[in-house]
Design a protein around this nucleic acid. Structure first.
Length: 174
DNA sequence: CGTCTGATTGTTGAA
DNA sequence: TTCAACAATCAGACG
């Protein structure tokens, strides 16, 4: 451990064959630059292209719950500075929650997903535009650089009441 | 100074 | 359908 930054590769090499049970996933950014030195120039015509505005993945219900949990956890454990501590505690607590309790978190996560899809469309367009070799000709023709929600558009403005309470207290179905 | 790590689970995107 | 990687966090640690 320690400085073995070479993590990128190890992260899923053999584990790939093994079931996903071992979620030893903590690693991130695998494909991007496991080697430290070596000239990053590489240029590679079209590969390893950084995303100008790649939308980040929407936080799962667990993360949504974690966000709140972190505050609570840190509030009672200000001394704890290890992210892993919150992760473990959060994970444990998360499993302790019932469907009904996770419902609000999932609802939020679901909403995130919707927004994410929207961002994806915008991002997708950018890629398309970029895909084109020469954009100078068409110029403004395709998509504007950044429109986003700027104007009102058809914003439905969520009026969600979160009244999807279908819970029949059937948590312990097992 | 910058990038990476740890640890959790869920979700998403690609094959 | 299945795999693999990443999403936040926060401070420490290494280059």
């Amino acid at each position: 451990m320690k400085s073995a930054k070479g993590k990128g590769a190890a992260r899923t090499s053999k584990e790939a064959l093994k079931p996903v049970d071992d979620r030893k996933v903590g690693k991130r950014k695998a494909p991007a630059r496991p080697e430290k030195s070596s000239a990053p120039k590489a240029k590679k015509e079209k590969k390893a292209k950084k995303d100008p505005n790649k939308p980040k993945r929407p936080p799962s219900a667990f993360f949504v719950f974690l966000e709140e949990f972190r505050k609570t956890f840190k509030a009672e454990n200000p001394n704890v500075k290890a992210v892993s501590a919150v992760g473990k505690a959060g994970g444990e607590k998360w499993k302790s929650l019932s469907n009904a309790e996770k419902a609000p978190y999932e609802a939020k996560a679901a909403k995130r997903k919707v927004e994410y899809e929207k961002l994806m469309k915008a991002y997708d367009k950018k890629q398309a535009s970029s895909a084109d070799d020469d954009e100078s000709d068409k110029s403004k023709s395709e998509v504007n650089d950044e429109d986003e929600e700027a104007s009102g558009e058809e914003d439905h403005q969520e009026e969600e009441d979160e009244e999807e309470e279908e819970e029949e207290d059937d948590e312990d179905d097992d």
